[in-house]
């Protein structure tokens, strides 16, 4: 007989080993005055996946903090359920790029690490990988709940060439506590991001 193993597959994410070696903020002897950048909070951007009846991507411009109506517009990221695409490669005609950093805290990230490898979406995979544990979220099979991974920051090079750091916060309406989540009402993307519009890599 088999007792169904209620424990999830005990795989091991090497988050701790993949800790990027980001360099400290370089000595800032430039003349430009320090501008304190503010994080923008985007709440409940509804972009349901196929399971929730979604049919197309919701395109978003980080530069303008607004939804872009068409694929042909000036957008940076596209959302469809748990999938996030960049406006480049196989998914767009733009110049956006992205990479996922593990083991960092959004507020503490002061610049784009020199080791960061920005990528575009290709046939082999997206710049922001899909699948549980690979990119920005964890999907729990028994409960069907999607939880953003802690310590993950998405770095985006926008269509316009500026750098932004972004943290996914919630996949459910109103950013509820874990115990209040209705797993069948997902697709409400809540995230925050900081855009450095002067073209430098510092946040």
């Amino acid at each position: 007989m088999i007792i169904n193993n209620m424990k999830k597959v005990n795989y091991f994410i090497l988050a701790m080993l993949a800790l990027p070696l980001f360099t400290a903020c370089t000595d800032n002897d430039e003349t430009e005055p320090e501008v304190e950048l503010e994080a923008v909070l985007v709440e409940d951007l509804y972009a349901p996946g196929a399971q929730s009846g979604g049919t197309e991507f919701v395109y978003y411009s980080l530069e303008n903090n607004a939804v872009v109506d068409s694929e042909d517009g000036d957008w940076d990221l596209g959302f469809f359920g748990t999938t996030i695409i960049v406006n480049n490669g196989v998914n767009g005609d733009g110049n956006a790029e992205a990479t996922v950093l593990n083991g960092v805290i959004f507020d503490e990230l002061e610049s784009v690490p020199t080791t960061a490898e920005f990528a575009i979406d290709t046939e082999e995979g997206n710049a922001i990988p899909t699948g549980s544990g690979n990119g920005w979220y964890l999907y729990d099979q028994p409960t069907h709940i999607v939880t953003p991974l802690a310590g993950v920051v998405i770095l985006v090079k926008t269509n316009a060439g500026n750098y932004a750091k972004l943290e996914m916060i919630s996949y459910y309406e109103g950013n509820p506590a874990h115990e209040d989540i209705d797993p069948f009402a997902g697709g409400y993307q809540t995230f925050r991001y900081t855009l450095q519009s002067n073209g430098t890599m510092n946040f």
Partner: peptide
């Protein structure tokens, strides 16, 4: 060494 992360009540990383 600060290598483990979780989310607080506002779902922000700590």
């Amino acid at each position: 060494n600060g290598e483990y992360f979780k989310r607080n009540e506002q779902n922000q990383t700590t």
